[in-house]
Write a protein that binds this DNA or RNA. Structure first.
Lengths: 257, 257
DNA sequence: GGTATTATTATAGGTGCACATAATAATTGT
DNA sequence: ACAATTATTATGTGCACCTATAATAATACC
């Protein structure tokens, strides 16, 4: 027999748990890891376990609830993923001292994003050049000295209208192959994804006022507020690419589920 | 004996895997779920399994690699979490037809964010009123008819300078208790977190031009580009609150590790 | 006596097995 | 031919046992 403790809440980064919190623990019935998760989450929410507090060790919780430790561990792993608790071997489990709301975003291939909205996708190369990277890009890569990279500017179109302007720098030391690619036919994005998977990716979001250039490429007015998604990738510690995706006014990014 | 297949890549939403891809599979040694993950991820990256393709069933992979199916399943679950594959009972495992980059962001309590940056935190209530929600808020809640809610405007300060302006609507039907809270002393955010945990949370990011009011509250110039983080929460299907966190110019949001 | 080094051990992490569950396909009955 | 039922099959879940690791205690060394 499997009974749900029905004591739950949601981690926005995970699936939806619709049950209300509950801190009772019917014993001697089979608990699912999800009900255990809700049980513990409930205790975190009602401050039985406050930020920074140490939780009982898995074994104890398992014994208290009458289930296997693995079940508790499964619940705990989920709570770690949602940013609620921190676990360390021998150190035990603690409620995160600085509670956060964890949000997960899926950043699709622009072509897919456009086509899924039933709009026609287009791509247009604006410029390719070799130049010394500006300070901002050097900072993103964590590079002290400013070296030369290949700069690729392009516009992604939806229904023949500008959608995202892409300002990309590619490290030709790491990715020499980019020099032989015909970027007017194939977007650097898709070529890189296919040929140079990354081992590390850092993303940052911010807003900028449309410069004259941005306004021109995005066919909008200078001074408009634009959401920028900046992505920097490495393979091991070698820089691959850093790209600013400057979106059209009104663009919104939503959490997945 | 445990040997690493060393065939890997990173899911940005998860830990860092520094190994390069590898599609060989030394047999008859014990594989960890992480090496299995890297092995499969490698095959996805090199298009052995292309977007939309069906992967062999767990049992087959387990047998091929000479490990238990649970180990494969653990790897698969991680690949699901990172948005690489989709799994369905009986339906098997498929490579996501629309590959995405999955990014995870931690949105901290503003007080913590400020204090962790070694700055002094301050909070100032701007206005409290009851009013009919504007269309944008109704849309966020998914409500057809415009009802009345309590609107709370406040500014969060860092080192006595505006940091984030918060424009919040609270559903007094779901959260009547808010009417008795002295919001000049306690931010609605912290009170709600403590007393009304949500079961569902939706977040969206976008950029806006600073209106005259925003400029005044944030002590900046009208027309500046501001990053907005909008959060809407529910308990079950009942609306709790929808809040626009309008950030100061230059604010950036970074992925967590 | 204090510091660096080693040993101990508590606690989370990982693996393999058996069984549960859900979605599809096959079969049966009308 | 259609609907209801049963069988099949792939993933999901829980459990027992083993391993890895980090905090602490014990020891050796100046």
């Amino acid at each position: 027999m499997q009974v749900d403790l029905a004591c739950g809440h949601l981690s926005p980064s995970k699936g939806i748990y619709t049950q209300k919190p509950e801190t009772l623990l019917p014993q001697n019935i089979r608990h699912s890891w999800q009900s255990v998760r809700r049980y513990i989450h409930g205790k975190i929410l009602d401050k039985t376990y406050a930020p920074g507090d140490k939780l009982p060790k898995d074994d104890d919780i398992a014994q208290t609830l009458g289930c296997a430790r693995t079940t508790v561990q499964r619940a705990m792993r989920d709570l770690v993923d949602s940013g609620h608790v921190v676990r360390r071997r021998k150190g035990g489990t603690r409620v995160r001292p600085d509670p956060v709301t964890r949000a997960t975003f899926d950043i699709p291939i622009i072509r897919n994003e456009v086509e899924n909205a039933n709009r026609s996708y287009g791509y247009q190369l604006v410029n390719v050049a070799d130049a010394v990277i500006p300070n901002q890009v050097a900072t993103s890569f964590g590079l002290g000295n400013a070296i030369e990279m290949r700069r690729i500017e392009a516009v992604h179109l939806a229904d023949n209208r500008p959608y995202i302007f892409e300002d990309r720098w590619v490290d030709t030391r790491t990715v020499p192959g980019i020099l032989d690619v015909d970027l007017s036919q194939q977007s650097a994005n898709e070529w890189l994804v296919r040929h140079h998977p990354y081992s590390r990716c850092e993303i940052r979001f911010y807003a900028v006022k449309a410069t004259a250039a941005y306004a021109r490429h995005l066919n909008t007015a200078p001074g408009e507020a634009l959401l920028v998604m900046e992505r920097t990738t490495w393979i091991d510690t070698a820089p691959i690419t850093s790209v600013k995706a400057v979106t059209v006014p009104g663009y919104q990014l939503l959490t997945c589920i």
